[in-house]
């Protein structure tokens, strides 16, 4: 476990030193929020849960929990998804 963490840290330092985009090197999720009604998530693994008040998305290392009203997935492809609806909160949890 410790080794893996160290590896991760090294990767991060390397990425920032070489000023390379972290979403490419580390596979970090890119979340773009436009206003309070539109969220774009890139670099994710999959959907865990999806109702019209809660969407949980698995990314590398953590989950994104999106709460709101009338949530709807506009489109859903292998590398990007777009969610519309009234967004109340966005959480990152392990």
């Amino acid at each position: 476990m410790g080794k893996e963490k160290e590896n991760e840290r090294l990767k991060e330092r390397l990425a920032s030193a070489a000023s390379m985009p972290k979403d490419v090197v580390l596979g970090a999720a890119v979340v773009t929020i436009i206003g309070a009604g539109e969220v774009c998530i890139e670099n994710y693994r999959g959907i865990i849960e999806y109702t019209d008040i809660l969407i949980r998305v698995q990314t590398k290392g953590y989950q994104i929990k999106l709460q709101g009203k009338n949530l709807q997935i506009e489109y859903y492809t292998n590398d990007e998804m777009k969610i519309t609806g009234k967004i109340v909160s966005l959480e990152y949890c392990k």
């Binding site: 489109y75 859903y76 292998n78």
Partner: peptide
């Protein structure tokens, strides 16, 4: 859904 996206099947209006 996840399998669909894995197989590059485009889904919209979910």
């Amino acid at each position: 859904l996840n399998l669909c996206s894995y197989h590059q099947i485009y889904i919209w209006g979910l």
